[in-house]
């Protein structure tokens, strides 16, 4: 199993390399966190300001979707390799869920 790691022959060098990679990635995580907070703030302010709800509803849903993509791809590492099956099944779930929500907001009351 050890051959899963990139080996330069010198384990010490590899570890240092990995540490650096991890650290870099952590920086990205903090950036995406700041963006998520920023998006949340916009959403709350948009509602607080009281624009027309025809604008606000789609707008804040869009913000939520963007924020969730950050969560999934950065915090949950879906951008990494080896997440093909997880993505397939997550998106299938999203599709089924979206159809459900669509149906419940259109053909429940008449």
């Amino acid at each position: 199993m050890a051959n899963h790691q990139p080996t330069s022959g010198n384990p010490r060098v590899d570890i240092e390399y990995r540490r650096k990679k991890n650290k870099e990635e952590m920086k990205h995580q903090v950036t995406s966190f700041s963006l998520m907070i920023f998006l949340t703030l916009i959403a709350f302010f948009a509602v607080g300001y009281g624009y027309s709800h025809w604008f606000i509803a789609p707008f804040i849903i869009l913000l939520a979707v963007i924020q969730v993509i950050f969560q999934l791809y950065y915090f949950m590492h879906m951008s990494h390799k080896g997440h093909e099956a997880p993505s397939l099944f997550l998106y299938s779930g999203v599709t089924v869920g979206a159809i459900t929500v669509l149906a419940f907001s259109t053909i429940i009351w008449w």
Binding site: T95, V96, I99, A103, T106, I107, W110
Partner: peptide, 17 residues
Amino acid sequence: FMVWAHHMFTTGLGPIA
């Protein structure tokens, strides 16, 4: 997953659905 409402045709979902 796209066909469940055929069990409910007579419920009154409307002609489009």
